[in-house]
Amino acid sequence: MTSQVPDLWPPSAQEVVFLLLGVVALGSALLVVTTRQLVHAALWLVVCFGALAGGYLVLTAEFVAWVQVLIYVGAIVVLLLFGIMLTRAPIGRSAGLDSGNRVTAATVAVGTAAVLVTVVVQGFATAYTPLEPGGGAAATLGASIFRSWVLPFEALSVLLLAALIGAIVLSRTDIRPANPAADAGGPAAPTTPPHPPDPAPPPADGSGATAGETGSGRVSRDGG
């Protein structure tokens, strides 16, 4: 890109900071995939995401860094911890966390790392850019989202709503098909098990109205 590119090895101060953060991120990621305690894996994931957020800050992507802290550390790790607690995982040291094919997995991972690092180093060895602040500020990024990328943004909001409703339907246990429908309707009985979110067992004349009412009520409750 630029005419004079500084040498690769004596790294500048920014690169030293980024490399230290990268080493922290890689070490904690390695602990995530090798630790024997399930809760510690989630906590090392916090360290890894925090170091990556610091790396985004060094790369002048401030808004992405804060979103990373808010959503990953604040929401996703908490969600994973909830999952760990709700599945009654062993809190202490447990031996059965690793599968039997660790050697194969390590071989595949080392092969992937070798291929990717070789390609990346050969392809981008001379790529250099000076860092200038302001490129990833919230103002510029927000203007970019709401001017150029507003259609994917809206589509993503629909996807989030669908994921929310899907998670609710999957995790609720009280909207299973009612069992008295099995002896009430003869031929319709075997079709009910593949459709758990179907809440309308009544006869066919009023089923559409009741389904519409319950659907609108649930949507309004979610929105409010």
Partner: peptide, 22 residues
């Protein structure tokens, strides 16, 4: 900032993720 450093970190992180999934 050389682009190689973040790309190498990213490639290694991806490989660690691959190992974890497998």
């Amino acid at each position: 900032m050389h682009v190689v450093y973040p790309l190498v970190v990213s490639a290694l992180l991806f490989s660690i993720g691959v190992y974890g999934v497998l």
